[in-house]
Design a protein around this nucleic acid. Structure first.
Length: 303
DNA sequence: AGCGAGGGCTGTTGGATAAA
DNA sequence: TTTATCCAACAGCCCTCGCT
């Protein structure tokens, strides 16, 4: 067997290029600079006497030679990794470390109490930092930059091979008004719903939400009196005004203003809201991060 | 065997340029 | 506009070689 001239790191670079189809992202994945990855690609081209990847509008396209090599190289690297890198057992009770999670408001509200209680019991040496994010794709940016270990939020708009997701939380909407509201004694009909001023919680400050989309399909519009980014302020506002709001059920049920509110099924059909656990492929096999993800998933299931 | 010098390789940053 | 590539200058590591 003659491996003369073949550097295993070059094969790892090739594997990263096959997966990412982009020199810059492959460089990030390998923990080297972009020029270094470009140089590695140049050495691979010399080694295999083939251009391997060609630039196109869709990114780097593998040549037939690169496609032939991709599977065997990937298999070989996985086998070598399994054989050579004996991963240490992760013992949560013994470690001292900090995890950073990206959480939008709702997952932070729903998950954090249970998560902190579980960490105190199972891993007292682990502390948490939380970074908030507003738009659905900024979680991906934070993961790409390595600023967070995982995120929980609405699924990213575009599927990316380097970003992994799993649905862990669902919730339904309810329409809320204050308990002694004179216009809602007989329930929440569509007519009543449309006659009341509405509060909309929107992280991006939009004045158009899922309710407005559902109403538009019926050819209807509601009166929006207030749009605010603080989702958890909405029940308190509704409890002390004649406004109504349509919010996720847990937001209403766990609000301090819960006793002053009455909850109705929304008079328009609204989809269930889904929140995903989101993480980067590079942390897929990290024992500590895998343990944290499994813990978050099991806690979400038990809610 | 141990040491130091020299050279090659590969990495970095910073900048320029070409191509999609 | 974004991304890939190339270049220059420099740094660190490792191997080879010659010497003791």
């Amino acid at each position: 067997m003659d491996f003369h001239g073949i550097d295993l790191n070059l094969l790892a670079a090739f594997d990263a290029l096959v997966e990412e189809r982009n020199v810059t992202r492959a460089a990030v994945r390998m923990g080297v600079s972009q020029p270094a990855m470009s140089a590695a690609l140049s050495r691979l081209r010399t080694l295999f006497e083939d251009p391997l990847f060609l630039r196109s509008a869709e990114g780097l396209l593998p040549t037939p030679r690169a496609r032939d090599l991709a599977g065997p190289v990937s298999d070989a690297l996985r086998r070598l990794e399994a054989a050579l890198v004996k991963k240490p057992e992760f013992e949560p009770a013994q470690v001292a470390m900090d995890f950073t999670l990206g959480l939008s408001d709702y997952p932070a509200f729903v998950l954090l109490p249970a998560l902190l209680n579980a960490l105190e019991k199972k891993a007292p040496g682990i502390s948490l930092s939380v970074r908030s994010f507003s738009s659905r794709d900024s979680a991906v940016d934070l993961l790409d930059a390595g600023l967070i270990d995982a995120a929980v939020g609405v699924p990213p708009t575009q599927a990316e091979s380097r970003i992994l997701t799993r649905p862990i939380l669902h919730d339904d909407f309810v329409t809320i008004v204050r308990r002694d509201h004179p216009d809602a004694r007989r329930g929440m009909s569509l007519k009543t719903f449309l006659s009341l001023p509405h509060v909309l919680a929107s992280p991006e400050g939009d004045r158009h939400g899922l309710v407005d989309e559902a109403l538009a399909q019926l050819g209807k519009r509601r009166k929006l009196a207030l749009s605010l980014p603080q989702m958890f302020a909405v029940p308190a506002v509704v409890a002390q005004t004649r406004m109504t709001a349509t919010v996720m059920k847990r937001v209403a049920l766990h609000s301090p203003a819960r006793r002053m509110l009455v909850l109705f099924p929304p008079p328009v059909a609204l989809p269930q809201v889904q929140f995903d656990l989101i993480w980067h492929r590079r942390s897929e096999t990290n024992p500590a991060q895998a343990w944290l993800r499994a813990l978050i998933e099991s806690l979400a299931k038990s809610l």
